Measured scan of single mutants.
Amino acid sequence: MPSETPQAEVGPTGCPHRSGPHSAKGSLEKGSPEDKEAKEPLWIRPDAPSRCTWQLGRPASESPHHHTAPAKSPKILPDILKKIGDTPMVRINKIGKKFGLKCELLAKCEFFNAGGSVKDRISLRMIEDAERDGTLKPGDTIIEPTSGNTGIGLALAAAVRGYRCIIVMPEKMSSEKVDVLRALGAEIVRTPTNARFDSPESHVGVAWRLKNEIPNSHILDQYRNASNPLAHYDTTADEILQQCDGKLDMLVASVGTGGTITGIARKLKEKCPGCRIIGVDPEGSILAEPEELNQTEQTTYEVEGIGYDFIPTVLDRTVVDKWFKSNDEEAFTFARMLIAQEGLLCGGSAGSTVAVAVKAAQELQEGQRCVVILPDSVRNYMTKFLSDRWMLQKGFLKEEDLTEKKPWWWHLRVQELGLSAPLTVLPTITCGHTIEILREKGFDQAPVVDEAGVILGMVTLGNMLSSLLAGKVQPSDQVGKVIYKQFKQIRLTDTLGRLSHILEMDHFALVV
């Protein structure tokens, strides 16, 4: 994948999101292997301009796509893939009243899908469409860049269908997702969380590099694949309309690839034109409109599966009536509230959605109805927002919020430890010299600072030695090549209790 991002070429006709291997024109390309080798690009942008032909009021008969309808489940399912879809609609009884809503608040519980998330729908649909058009064949390999849930859905379907599955996901995604993927037989590649989507090191860039190296491999490409919004247009939206008897006044959905909100909203605009569509985008993402909503100094966020630093091709923002931004604290607070007060075992993005819903639905009156999409299960986040310690460490809970008995030293300040200034190293000294210094002084790690004293990161003896043994660096290389740029900081005025929580999850903390 090139470091400079080429513009994806656009073909003359058809839909841009065809499933299957992508040609340089962004659509299915038939021909000899030699032709494909000559024409197939190194990668295709996940934010390529959409060429979708959908228009409100256009006859369904003019759609270029294969459409399906929700099917009634048999008493005995032939395999677990038949437990994807037909998820329950559940009334939220307490939270709406707590925040003064007059309307009825309903939750579409997508964590009841077989793999635990709304992404099971698009995973199965992308595979079925690729099999139907002859792209996927027995023994082929599926590769997908994902925040985890699409990966789980694909790995689940691949396990049943017999495909090899490789999932490329950023490091910030939970260990629970990784464990589930491994249990399903998927191979996992992790990428830096802070890598831009168009960087060769991003999950998108690495996935395309693997595709170019592995024979008979395919990126189904949830960011561009029409099967993504079509899955929701054909099934999720129809289920909502049936469950609500066609009567709903507002739908609120958090947005990642945009397939969920695009597919549902398009069908609702056709069948229930008075329904307002509300999009939820986390602070630090750029999906919301108008652009002024996205202006923030924050560039990272903890909530998973929603928000991006690019506009995915499948996201149709014209069908969203209003956007709201959400933050991590309210997302996790509301997710825990949904679990504790409503018994809905949902993930953090569901918290984002409901946090926005109780604001947006203030305009609705008694007798009206708001539906929220709860995308995934708490299963993926047992060591994250479900953990009091994690919430404390991230600053989303305060010590006084917890009532468990603490040891005698818990409320003492870090400054009472009488710490001395640490050994520091410059980023320009060599790895070999740094190892000598650390061994001589008896230290395992040291902060790396520039000549102005600005902290650049941390270097550890173990990481340097393993990097040297693996051949990633040489003793003569500058130590700046092996620094940890993500590390926890703590102030002298913070409590030892807070430091204790940090050290339970990290090997060190830097006192500043």
Rank of each mutant, 00 (worst) to 15 (best):
P215Y: 08
P33H: 10
P12E: 09
T260L: 02
C52A: 01
N93F: 03
I214Q: 04
W208T: 09
V168Q: 02
A157D: 11
R18K: 15
D245W: 03
A38M: 08
T87E: 00
N212L: 14
Q243C: 06
S147K: 03
F112C: 01
I214H: 01
T141H: 09
S50E: 07
T260F: 00
P74G: 08
E34H: 10
G259S: 02
K30Q: 11
N93A: 05
K82H: 10
N194W: 11
E131P: 04
A207Y: 00
T150W: 00
T260K: 02
I219L: 09
A107N: 01
I167D: 08
K119W: 01
N93S: 15
E270R: 07
A155I: 01
Y223V: 00
D245Y: 08
S217L: 01
L210D: 02
R51M: 06
L181C: 00
I188T: 05
S254F: 04
V189D: 04
L251F: 07
W43A: 11
N228C: 00
R224E: 09
R121C: 00
E128A: 04
G100V: 09
R276C: 09
R196K: 13
G26Y: 07
G85Q: 01
R209N: 09
I80R: 02
C272L: 11
N225S: 05
A69G: 07
S19G: 10
P200M: 12
S123E: 08
S27A: 13
V180I: 04
A71I: 14
K75F: 06
A157Q: 06
H22R: 14
L28A: 10
R121M: 00
P59V: 04
K177W: 00
S117V: 03
Q242G: 15
G14C: 06
R132G: 05
P64R: 03
D249H: 07
R91F: 08
R121G: 00
E29T: 12
V10D: 03
K247P: 07
E62P: 14
H65T: 07
P21K: 11
P273V: 10
I80E: 01
P2T: 15
N93G: 04
P12S: 12
P33R: 12
I214G: 03
E110T: 01
T257K: 02
F99N: 09
K83H: 10
S61T: 14
E131I: 07
P49Y: 05
T193C: 07
A159F: 08
I188Q: 00
S123G: 05
K102D: 05
A159G: 05
I127R: 04
E34C: 03
D249K: 14
K172S: 04
S63H: 08
H17C: 04
E110G: 00
P12I: 06
F197A: 06
L124A: 11
H22V: 13
S227G: 05
E62N: 14
E131H: 02
F112I: 06
E104T: 04
T260I: 08
C52G: 00
A186Y: 00
N225R: 02
G26I: 05
I261E: 01
D120Y: 06
N225I: 00
H67E: 10
C103W: 06
E104G: 12
A155Q: 02
F99A: 13
P49G: 03
L268Q: 01
I44C: 08
V118I: 06
I127D: 06
T262S: 14
P273R: 08
K97V: 07
N216L: 06
K94M: 14
E128C: 03
G185D: 01
P192M: 06
D249Q: 07
I142H: 02
P16N: 06
D120N: 08
G256D: 00
D234L: 09
C272S: 09
D35V: 13
T235K: 10
C244T: 02
A71T: 15
I127P: 06
K267N: 11
M89G: 05
G57P: 09
I84P: 08
G11S: 15
A114I: 06
I84G: 08
S147Q: 02
A48Q: 10
R266I: 10
G263Y: 00
P21T: 15
T13C: 04
P12M: 09
A155R: 01
A207T: 07
P273K: 14
V189A: 14
D133F: 05
P16C: 03
N149F: 02
